[in-house]
Structure formats: C-alpha cells, structure tokens
Design a binder for these strands. Structure first.
Lengths: 217, 217
DNA sequence: TCCAAATGTAAGCATTGATTACACGGAGTG
DNA sequence: CACTCCGTGTAATCAATGCTTACATTTGGA
C-alpha cells in the first residue's frame, strides 16, 4: 500500500474518505454496495470480494460482519423486509378508519409500492437460492404478514363484505397475484408497459383492484 | 485407476455399468443427475464437479456438453420447457372442441399439472439468477405461450364470454396468479395444504377456477 | 484398414468463499 | 496522561470450484 501506517486522520470525519483504518460503518456500507452491485452487474455477479473492493476494504473484512456470502445476501433481504414492513405499516395507518376489505387493499398497495420502488430488494427476498430463508427471521416475519392478510380477509367476511366463498382461498389468491405480478415485473415479463406510456405500478394496482372487486359482495 | 486400458467391453451394453470409456449418453445423464442433485441437496449446492461425480465421469467431462455451469442449468430449464409444452399441448388437444375460455382454463390446468409434477424443473426455470434466460430459447418459447394465452383471452372476449374489462389485464392477472401459486408451492408458502388431507394441485385448480369464474360473463 | 471426429481424462490455472494470525485504534479506567 | 482491552480491519493462506488445455480412447465412415 502507498499509505503510511500513521494516517493521523482521526478527527477528519468530513471530506472524502480519508481511509482510516476503521471504516466506521462497514456493515451498512457493505449492504448498500451489495444492492448497488446487483443493480449494475446482476445478482449472479455478486461476490464478497467485489463488494469489499467496492467499499475499499480488504477481501476478508466483510466476514467480520457476515460469516458467509449467504449471510450477506440474507442481511440484504432482512433489510428489505424492514422496508416492506415500514411501507405496510404506513399504508395501514393511512387506512385506519376503513373497513377490513379496504385495509386489505391498502396493505396490497403498500406491498406493490415497496416491490416496484425497491426491485433489487424484492429480487433478493424472492430468490431462495441465494438466501437463508428458513434460518433467519424472514420466514417468521413473512408468515406474520400472511397472517395479517388472512385475518383481514376473515374480518371482511364476518362483516359481510365478501362474496360467498372461502376467505382462505381469497387470501391465498391475493397473495399469489401480488407475488406473481411483482416477480413478472422484475423478470421483464410485462408485455409493453415498462416502456413509457403506462406506469407499471398504477397498472398493477388496477389489476389488484380488479381482484378486490371480484371478491367483494 | 484399477482398470486396464483395454476394457474390451465394446459390445457389452447390457448389465450394470461396465464403465466403458465413453459413457454413451452423458448429456442426458448429466441433466438427470442435476435434477436429482437439486432435489436432494438444493439448487445452491449444485456444482459441475458434484454432478460429474454423481454420473461417474471426470470433472472436466461435462464441459464437452455444457460450456458453463449456467449452460448446464439452462439446459435443464430448456428440458423443463419441453415438458411444459408437452403438457400444454396435451391439455389443449383434450379441450379442442371447447370455447376459448374453457381452452384457456385447460391451458392453465396444464401449467399447474406440470409445475406441481416437476417442482424442480419449475424452480430452475423460475430462478433467473442461475440460468441464461435471454440468451437461450427460453424467452422466445415463454413469450409464445404468453401470446397463446393472450389470444385466447381476446377470442373469449370476441365471443362474448368475458365480463366487461380489458382482456389484456385478465391475461396478465391469470398468468401472475398461476406463477405466484406455483412459486408459493415450491417455496413452502402454503399454510397447511401440503400436509395430507388436501391435494395441493386440486386446491390450486380450485383457485384458478375461481379466477375464471370472476372474469366470465 | 485407416483416419478423423467425437468424447472422456488428466493436469492445471484463476477466482472465490472461508479461516487464521496479526495489526491497528478507540473507549474506558486508573 | 498512560495503560489495557476488545472490536475491527489486514495479510496470508487453504480448499473448492469454474473453466481451459493437452492428451488418450473410442467410434464411425471413407
């Protein structure tokens, strides 16, 4: 290295990265770099070394924070789940006064807003081959959201808002529809929307509304 | 090796694998071993070496047939697409006399039958991180099926079989529903069906029928 | 019969995930 | 201020893997 071992840059926090020995917040920097790397190079091109290089640390440094490559990507997924949860909570708070079916709709729109606003995060969280879904909090938190949606559907039925039918089926169908739409979006399966005239998010919400209408009494 | 270099096993095709120099049908054997390896060890544990070992050839042998690891998995996906196409053609042939909406239903059921009957193949084909979707025939064939479904939906509308609404939206919604349901199945997202009392395939077809009914006139 | 193409083997290189021993620096304590 | 502890990053290294190259063997056809 060209740098002397006495940087004396202890107090210089501002300005360009003075490259002090301790990064300061390496963990978060690694997560952000990983997301950026997926955006530019693709998920399969993500290596721990490349992420370390992007941040400017040695190849072994990331392993202080993430024991395995899978753990790194799982952490990205966990952060993604945080954002999803925030988005959902925000949507639910805004629809606090509405009936169960409209709250269900708000939750769905919150999901779409998150997925279309953070496509890389959705990609990571939905690609089981690269993360540890079971051995993390992801499964539990995922199930929690699923339970919330199922409860809403039951409440909606109890309130007479639903067409005759099994509310569990409705809940599963709604989830599958949302998951499939988001996945089709990041996989480039949308025929011609992603060009310009139409906003994919608006279009997807339209389809979701169509679903809501089809199960409403 | 303990084997002499003059096996003289040219004509002995029957019986247990006499391990002749040329495998005979290595390409297909590699594909099958890959599928089996994914079933037992998981998609992320698939390495070219492990597949070669399972078949009983040297680590470099697979590269005569598949230039890269991605090519191997892409070939699995291509074979999966073959089977899907067969299943769809069979379903369409059986529903030849029906109207457009019922043919659409038959196609959907063909898809579910394939996905639930070949979960590993569906997993590979739907995991973009490990295959070359664009640089293969997968994209084209996928688009072809999509076009068939879209045409059916248009035909159904022209025949007055559809509720008022955009048939393109209906087609996209149906695809997303199917894709999401299949993906939820292989990801273990089905609440309690996969246990015993209920047949997941039957349940999924029920949900799909519910969708069909919701868009029918 | 003989040659050429196809196919598998053997050996090795480059990259990458992961481990280990060591170096550095910051925070608390006296 | 001096000292120590411990969290954090570095350097060196190993093992596994993707991939390449040179060679060996078999097969099929002229």
């Amino acid at each position: 290295m060209s740098r002397p071992s006495t940087p004396a840059a202890k107090a210089s926090v501002g300005g360009p990265p003075g490259r002090r020995y301790h990064h300061g917040n390496l963990r978060q920097a690694l997560l952000e770099a990983t997301v950026q790397l997926i955006e530019t190079q693709g998920l399969d091109q993500v290596s721990v070394r490349a992420v370390a290089k992007m941040v400017g640390v040695s190849p072994g440094a990331p392993f202080r924070h993430f024991p395995t490559r899978t753990a790194l990507l799982t952490a990205v997924a966990e952060q993604a789940m945080d954002r999803l949860r925030e988005e959902i909570d925000k949507a639910l708070a805004a629809a606090a006064g509405e009936n169960a079916l409209m709250r269900y709709r708000a939750l769905g729109i919150g999901f779409f807003t998150w997925a279309f606003g953070n496509p890389v995060h959705f990609q990571v969280i939905s690609t089981r081959a690269v993360i540890d879904f079971e051995g993390s909090s992801l499964r539990a938190r995922n199930d929690e959201i699923r339970a919330v949606m199922a409860d809403m559907m039951r409440d909606a039925q109890a309130a007479g808002l639903l067409r005759r039918g099994d509310p569990v089926r409705y809940a599963v169908a709604g989830r599958a529809l949302g998951y499939g739409l988001a996945r089709m979006y990041i996989d480039g399966q949308f025929p011609s929307w992603d060009v310009e005239d139409l906003n994919p998010l608006q279009e997807v919400i339209g389809i979701f509304d169509q679903f809501i209408a089809s199960i409403a009494a």
